[in-house]
């Protein structure tokens, strides 16, 4: 297991990606060895409100000289993420990372299908860039409510073309790419006979539920990065559980956040 650390991090850069989403780059002195799908628990300041850290999938980790740069893509949805959007550059925060498991990135007989919905992009983008660097082939399906919420298109396009795959864009309102859900775009290609060795996905729960059914229907191996509200991120509070096929509730933070659809309980999302 990669060693977990409670890193002292500094807000090094921030840029808006959409009306609701932003990229936060954190700088740490200590090294961080993380793989796509793993996450960190980020403090939102010193006080007691908000009390808890927030869980974010890592969107990328790189080492620049003596500094580790950690990238997070964040959607402003409440108190904690609003604070994170407004911290001054140079602010000191804590990041407990890397936590949880990651996606399986080994190549198979076919390409991989990477599927991201909305702010589910970070672990998928991290996976895409790592896979592209290894020349493992994949198609990247990126869905959002509308064109302005399609995040990091340049990086997604660059990684996908480097991997020799297709970048499929979908929007609910049809303002860019194919109209409809990203899962429908994947379903169409599967019915046309496109084969994948594995699906790696992150996104809203209804999307992951649809993917679970799609994967079962096509006998596909699929790995989903799940999200549940987390207090600790390290498996002690037991707040973020998901039900497995064997009936056990396990913490997504420790046994996940990535699960194969075959190990999850049927209807795990209900």
């Amino acid at each position: 297991m990669i060693a977990r650390r409670d890193l002292a991090v500094r807000v090094a850069a921030r840029s808006d990606l959409s009306p609701t989403c932003f990229r936060l780059t954190l700088a740490a002195q200590e090294p961080l060895d993380a793989s796509p799908g793993q996450f960190g628990m980020l403090s939102c300041g010193e006080g007691f409100d908000p009390l808890l850290r927030r869980a974010f999938s890592l969107a990328g980790v790189s080492r620049q000289g003596d500094t580790t740069e950690v990238e997070l893509l964040i959607k402003e949805v409440g108190k904690g993420t609003t604070l994170l959007r407004h911290f001054a550059l140079g602010s000191d925060l804590r990041l407990l990372a890397p936590l949880g498991n990651g996606f399986s990135l080994d190549a198979g007989p076919h390409r991989l299908a990477l599927v991201a919905g909305g702010i589910g992009l970070p672990p998928v983008l991290f996976a895409a860039e790592v896979l592209a660097a290894r020349s493992t082939g994949f198609d990247l399906y990126l869905g959002a409510t509308s064109a302005v919420e399609l995040l990091e298109l340049t990086r997604c396009g660059r990684a996908t073309s480097r991997a020799g795959g297709e970048l499929v864009l979908t929007t609910d309102d049809g303002s860019r790419g194919e109209r409809g859900f990203v899962t429908a775009a994947l379903a169409r290609r599967l019915s046309e006979g496109r084969a994948y060795s594995r699906v790696l996905a992150c996104g809203p729960t209804p999307m992951l539920a649809a993917l679970t059914l799609l994967a079962r229907g096509h006998g596909l191996d699929a790995e989903l990065s799940l999200e549940e509200p987390m207090a600790c991120g390290v498996g002690v509070c037991l707040g973020c559980v998901v039900k497995l096929a064997d009936g056990r509730y396990v913490p997504t933070c420790k046994e996940g956040p990535v699960f194969r659809t075959s190990e999850l309980a049927p209807g795990w999302w209900t």
């Binding site: 409100d49 009390l51 987390m230 973020c240 559980v241 056990r248």
Partner: peptide, 30 residues
């Protein structure tokens, strides 16, 4: 963690929610 004679699965989610300077939990003694 509280121990019972036999393992317990606990409650369905959501089990936790943050509140002002606190949190509410209903883990269900998993």
């Amino acid at each position: 963690k509280g121990l019972s004679p036999r393992p317990r699965a606990g409650n369905p989610v959501p089990r936790i929610v943050e509140t002002a300077a606190g949190m509410i939990n209903a883990i269900g003694l998993q």
